[in-house]
């Protein structure tokens, strides 16, 4: 109860299971892909670059997940898109009216 209240008030969690989850998330990506930390970081960086060629994205929200279903493992790349088809990213981003800055999410899924 108290924890839940604290979570609501401060918007953060001190529950140990959340630490467990994020640590597992991290280590299982390595276990499943066989990529090292550096390789994962490199992959992430290159993916961001590729997407940025065509979109203005919110890099904070960029996320790569390896999601395993019953018989396939899926690579899920989530990238919040701020502006579509950015020809001149900086100029265009500045022109976007406030009510249009709601992010859309481009999800790229591929089976690995």
């Amino acid at each position: 109860m108290f924890n839940a209240l604290k979570k609501k008030l401060f918007g953060q969690s001190n529950e140990s299971k959340d630490t467990a989850k994020s640590r597992l998330h991290f280590v299982l990506v390595q276990d499943r892909t066989g990529l090292t930390n550096e390789e994962m970081a490199g992959f992430r960086e290159e993916m961001v670059k590729v997407i940025e060629k065509y979109f203005v994205i919110d890099k904070e929200g960029f996320d790569i997940k390896y999601h395993r279903l019953a018989d396939t493992t899926t690579l899920l790349i989530n990238s919040p898109v701020i502006v579509r088809r950015a020809t001149a990213p900086a100029a265009k981003a500045a022109r976007v009216p406030e009510n249009e800055t709601d992010t859309e999410t481009a999800a790229v899924a591929s089976n690995v």
Partner: peptide, 11 residues
């Protein structure tokens, strides 16, 4: 699980 100190079934 209720206290948040153990992963839940859903987790």
């Amino acid at each position: 699980v209720r206290r948040g100190d153990m992963l839940s079934v859903r987790d």
